Simulated assay, not measured.
Amino acid sequence: MTLVEPRTAVTVGPLRTVPNHITAIRTVISVTVGVAAVVAGSAVLLSVAYGIYWFGDVLDGWAARRLGQETRAGAVLDIVSDRACTAVLGAGLVSLLPDVAVVAVVFLLSFLVLDTMLSLAFLCWPVLSPNYFYLIDRRVWAVNWSPVAKVANTAGVVGAVAFGQYRLALAVAVALVAVKLWSAGVMVRLLDRDDRS
């Protein structure tokens, strides 16, 4: 069920679920390996940490849907855990490649602040997670949480950096800021429209 019926009946769901355990484990391992990469100055360890983060992020979402264990608590845990992993791995990337500092600042501010606020805004409506925001507004969902948007929002910047295309990475990061700002404007109007502000 994607919508919870009466507004007062919105529950967070059980916390002890398989996907939440996956989220917690992938976060601890990714952050730990990411910190080890910074200490060792190792691009290989940093790549492994990114791999653990991305694989775990896909796996927890798949498990939640497959096992019927999607919950609002799980969605929030996933959002917060993504930010923890991204902050550590972004710092690790800058420590290994100081030339990407400007890209990292733009991307991290966008992801850690704007995207976090947008992602948590689903809590204002009776939906389980941002994955179902198309029930509220298809345009905002399409550019932020559709499968294509999820890949593009992070992989675009990281991929460009991985291939040494720092100007392209900065252009993608700036474009993401523009998308997030537009989405925030729409979100404010939606909150007013639905009397949830």
Rank of each mutant, 00 (worst) to 15 (best):
L190A: 04
A155P: 02
R83C: 03
I79S: 08
Y132I: 00
A162Y: 12
A36M: 04
A75W: 03
A75K: 07
V35Y: 05
L15V: 00
G92K: 07
V113C: 11
W145R: 05
V10K: 15
R167L: 14
G61I: 14
S30L: 04
L46P: 02
V48E: 03
G90E: 09
L89I: 07
W141I: 06
V58H: 08
T154P: 15
V188R: 13
L112C: 11
T27S: 02
V143A: 00
W141P: 07
F122N: 05
P6C: 02
D60H: 14
P126F: 06
A155C: 01
R72S: 14
D78T: 00
D99H: 13
A162Q: 13
V172H: 14
A171F: 15
T86W: 06
L97V: 12
G159W: 11
A171W: 14
V172C: 13
L135W: 01
Y166I: 14
I79L: 05
G185Q: 07
A171R: 09
G34H: 08
A175M: 14
V48S: 10
F122E: 05
L114W: 06
M1R: 13
L97A: 15
M1V: 03
V4L: 12
L135D: 00
R66A: 15
R138V: 02
L120T: 10
L128H: 00
V174T: 15
M187V: 11
A73S: 09
V58E: 07
R139Y: 09
S95A: 15
A36C: 11
L190S: 09
D57Y: 01
V28W: 02
W145F: 15
V76Q: 10
M1D: 08
V179N: 03
A173S: 15
L176G: 15
Q165S: 02
R65W: 14
A101N: 06
S197F: 13
P6F: 04
S30V: 01
S146F: 09
W54V: 15
S110F: 11
L3Q: 09
C124V: 06
A91D: 06
F111A: 12
V39A: 05
D192Y: 01
L176F: 07
A152R: 09
I29L: 05
P147N: 10
R193A: 03
I22V: 14
T154I: 11
A91E: 11
A37V: 00
T71Q: 05
F55A: 15
A162D: 05
L89N: 02
M187G: 10
N144D: 10
S197Y: 12
W182A: 07
F111R: 10
T17M: 00
Y166W: 03
S183Y: 11
V186Y: 01
T71S: 10
A63E: 03
A75N: 08
R138Q: 08
P147V: 09
V48C: 00
V103T: 11
D194P: 10
S81L: 01
T11P: 13
A175K: 06
D57R: 02
V44K: 08
T23Y: 00
S129C: 04
V113W: 08
M1P: 08
W145D: 04
G13A: 10
I22K: 02
V4G: 09
T116N: 09
T23A: 03
G34R: 12
L59T: 06
S47M: 05
F107M: 14
S110L: 01
R7S: 05
R7C: 04
V106K: 08
S47N: 13
